[in-house]
Structures are given as structure tokens and as C-alpha cells.
Design a protein around this nucleic acid. Structure first.
Lengths: 274, 274
DNA sequence: CATCTGACTGACTCACCAGTCAGAAGGTCT
DNA sequence: AGACCTTCTGACTGGTGAGTCAGTCAGATG
């Protein structure tokens, strides 16, 4: 069975597990019913954003959708209820505000207003502001990972996968730039407040691990040189990416999105490609 | 005349211009009189920290001390008076607090306490807190540059100079780590508040320019490959440095000071050395 | 139908902190 | 001696924003 057939089967299986029609499922996922229908029929490909949303709504890993092992719905991770929905809404509002105004300039009242609710409602879900903000950082990064996985899982060739990763990481204005803004904040907070480090380092390890796996895969596929240490190359690749992103984000002279792309693709060509 | 002879002559010249004894000069610079005396006699080398302090106290550029052209004391930059001394004291306290606690967690009262004065005294020198903090960021970076110049100006071989630069940039606990902390804060602030970008970008351009010059010098000295574009190599070198520093600062798994050094020296060896 | 519970509101309190202001202390100039 | 300036203090004000709390209300439960 081809990869996309597996995917369609898995989405159908997930739909069967949750109650309600295909139309209701589409609504919950936030995708037009006609698009869902065409995608299930194989006449249209799911976008990575949709895959990420489907996995999230269904409470499964994107990996499972793409053919991975494991139970479709782990017993303790049932589909999100109403309560969790509101919680998520608050977290989304919070991380967007952090990205836009900065960690320390976000007020509980701002978050509440962005959700169309009252400050007290935010405190109903999170005891303190710190809790909202720290959770929001995690939430944003988690979502970004999910999307990344959804998109990269569809590409088989390791070289192309890495090139795609570079493209996905370019801080174009909009969502990706906001996510980079979160990273910058995360870094300065984690450098100062050690209690944020475990969370930060877990994420960072995952991001670097993802690069290590792509490089190793590329070596097995013989598209990357055999004489580079994947760990070492990933360390350099991630450092270069972060450093370049900072320069784009701060508008450093001579650094543009195109230049950043060139920098990273150049690294891949010079250091990795066989 | 050898480089260190020029240096000694210039320091003497500077001392002659400011009134007071050699002992008084030593006190103002914050160096033991005996050390100054031995350094002037050529029996001891000035440390880069001392050079930076001497230049600052005398109101001259470190370049001039090292034999550069220009007047020793530009008319509008006469040696710092009492007023400026107190101002500097506030700025030093401010940037250290920012490095330690973070930009947004510094209170005017904290700065005042660190200087042994009252909050109102801080407002006497700076109209608003914003002014103190922004000035403090600039001040810290400016001082770091001065020290860097003082140290690197003594090394003639471009390869060794770059290696020394790497060593100086490693965020060992203490002053250098604090300076990196300032950079992290500067980045996240500059990414969010465009009014900080001109200052940030000026500094960043200077830092990258310094690297460009070292690489170009190395090409003229034939210690670096001729086929690399200095601008391009500097862009990559700075991005790599910043990215690696972030990982050290946040305690990212597998990234240590030694690893950072290896990363950067590896870059120099692989990409620059002839 | 009565009761209970989860989700929430509006009005409040309280701490904190930037910035102000009227002078004091000490020095300099005339 | 006295006018005047610089530097600084201590006590104050006003605004802001986190967190609390009593109460509301829709819907579930028995």
C-alpha cells in the first residue's frame, strides 16, 4: 500500500472512532468538507497544516497518520473536550501576543480580550500568569514540531527533506516569523531562568535530533557523504540556522531571507552532499 | 619603533596631558601604581583590560594607543569629569543587572541600590528608565568592543587573531557570559521593538566588519585561502558564533564551551586556512 | 422539579514601582 | 557674606496590573 493510501485509510479510521458525520469532523478540524472529501478520495493531497490539525483533533501522533505503529487513540489521550478547547484557545492567544509584543509585555487582560473573555476566566484555567506564558511557549513550539513532521514525513529523499526543512524555517512574515520570535524569547528567558531550561532543552534536543535523523537517512540513501558525523554536522547546521535567523529577525545589515536560504543550502551542498 | 614601544610612548604622552602624578593616573585607571610603572619600563605587558581602561579614562581610542593616527585627546571628548563618572557607574550597574535578571526585571531602585544611591538620583541623570536601560545595552557592547580591539590589536598574524577572537568570545562564566546575556536580550528586544534596531544593527555591522577585516588581512598575509569572499565567510562565521553561543547560554544538550571552541576553530581550519 | 457543578463575570484589593518635587548639603564665584 | 549652581535625598503620588471572591447562569444529574 502506497504512503498516501495508508494516510487516507488512517484518516478514515480516525473519523470512524470519533462520533459525528464526515461533515462534523471536517468542521472540528477546520477544513472545508469538500476538501476533506476530495482528499479522502485521493483527488487532493492533505496539506501539512491539515495533517497537523487532524492529528491534534483526533488525539493521535502525526506519525501514526503517516503509517507509524501504535494505537490510534491512546486511552489517556482521548479527543479534546470542551474544557481543553478553551484552554488551547487561551494558549494560542498567549503565544501570539508573546510573539508580537514580547514575553514581559503581555497582560492577562490582553490574553482575555484576545479570547473575548475576562481576566478572571484566564485565572480559572491557569493559577498564575507565569503558568499561562510558560505553557504558551511550550504549546507554540509543540505545534511547530507537529507541522514540521507532517510536512517532512511526506518527503522520502533525505536531501530534498533537508532542503524543504530549510525553506520551512525561513522566517517569512506571518506564522513562521512569530515562531522564531518565540524562540528568541525562549532563549533569553532560558538563559536567565534555569527553571525554563528543562523544557527548552527537551525541545532543542528534538529539533537537533530531527536534523541528525535526516542526515543519517541521507547517508543510508547515499545522497550524503559517508565521512561526516551526523551529530556534529547537525550541531553546526542548527547553530548556523539559529544564528542566521537572529540576523534576519533583527534586520541585521546584509541579511535577508534569500541570503539565509543561500547560507543554509550552501552548507548542505558543501558539507553534506556526496 | 616596535609596537610595544609605541604603546608605552603613547601612554606616557597621555599621562603628560592629564594633570596629576603617575600615581594619580594609575588610581584613576584602576591599576596598581607598581604595575603601571613596570609596564611603562617595558618589564611587564599591559593587559587588554588595562588598555581599554586607559583609553577610556584618557578619552582616546584604543587604536591611538596602539599607534593609530589622530589627536590624542579630541577637543570635544575631554577626559571624563565627575558627572560622567557617576553616569557611567549607573550604566555599569544597569547592564550588569540586565545581564543577571533580564531587561524587564530591572527596577530603578535596584540600579540605585547597586550604586549605593537613591532612585531619584538615577532619574537625575536619565529622564526615564527606558533611557537608562537602552543606554546600558549600548554601553556594555561598546566596552566589549573596546576590550576586543585592545587585545586583538596586539596580534599581527590574522589566523592567530581570529583564533584569539574565538577564545575571547567563549561565554565563560563571568564578564563574557554577562555580555552574551546582554546580546540575547538585545536580540529579542530588537526583533520586537524597531526603535532599537538602528543601535543594534550598527553594533552588529561593526562586529561583522571586524571579522571581515581579519579575514581580508589573512588573505593579504597568505595565511587564508584566496578563493573565499570575506563578506560571505564573515556572515557565516558570525552566524555560527551566535548560534553556538545561544546553545551554550541555554545549556542545550551536548553543547559545551569546549564544543563551541571546536566548532569555530573547525570552521576556520576547514573554510579559511590556506 | 430540586440540586449540583462547571464555566464564567464584575467588582474589588493590594502591592509595586516609575516618576515628581521641595528642599538640603556642599561647593564656587563675586 | 551671600548669590547661585550642582548633586542628591526622602517623602510623596498616581497608575497599573495580578490575583481574589462572591455571585450568576446554563446545563447535567438524580
Amino acid at each position: 500500500m502506497a504512503a498516501d493510501e495508508v494516510l487516507r485509510a488512517r484518516v478514515r479510521q480516525l473519523m470512524a472512532l470519533t462520533d459525528g458525520s464526515q461533515r462534523a469532523f471536517a468542521a472540528r478540524v477546520g477544513i472545508e468538507p469538500s476538501k476533506l472529501s476530495r482528499s479522502l478520495a485521493g483527488k487532493r493531497r492533505f496539506t501539512p497544516w491539515e495533517l497537523a490539525r487532524i492529528a491534534e483533533t483526533g488525539g493521535v501522533a502525526v506519525d501514526w497518520l503517516l503509517g507509524g505503529d501504535g494505537t490510534p487513540v491512546p486511552p489517556d489521550e482521548a479527543p479534546a473536550g470542551h474544557r481543553d478547547q478553551r484552554r488551547d484557545e487561551i494558549l494560542v492567544a498567549a503565544w501570539r501576543l508573546i510573539a508580537e509584543r514580547g514575553y514581559h509585555s503581555v497582560r492577562v487582560a490582553d490574553i482575555a480580550q484576545a479570547c473575548g473573555t475576562s481576566p478572571a476566566a484566564v485565572h480559572y484555567y491557569f493559577p498564575t500568569k507565569q503558568d499561562v506564558l510558560n505553557e504558551a511557549l511550550r504549546y507554540c513550539v509543540e505545534q511547530a514540531f507537529t507541522r514540521q513532521r507532517a510536512e517532512l514525513g511526506l518527503i522520502d529523499d533525505a536531501h530534498q527533506r533537508l532542503v524543504r526543512l530549510v525553506e520551512m524555517q525561513l522566517p517569512w512574515p506571518g506564522r513562521v516569523r512569530d515562531e522564531w520570535s518565540i524562540w528568541l524569547q525562549f532563549w533569553s528567558e532560558a538563559a536567565l531562568r534555569t527553571e525554563l531550561r528543562p523544557a527548552h532543552n527537551e525541545f532543542y534536543a528534538r529539533w537537533r535530533e530531527a536534523v541528525v535523523r535526516i542526515i543519517s537517512k541521507g547517508q543510508r540513501q547515499r545522497v550524503f557523504r559517508q565521512d561526516v558525523d551526523p551529530e556534529d554536522a547537525a550541531l553546526r547546521f542548527t547553530a548556523l540556522t539559529d544564528g542566521a535567523a537572529i540576523q534576519v529577525m533583527t534586520g541585521a545589515p546584509g541579511m535577508t531571507l534569500d541570503r539565509m536560504r543561500g547560507l543554509l543550502l550552501g552548507f548542505i551542498d558543501r558539507e553534506l552532499v556526496a
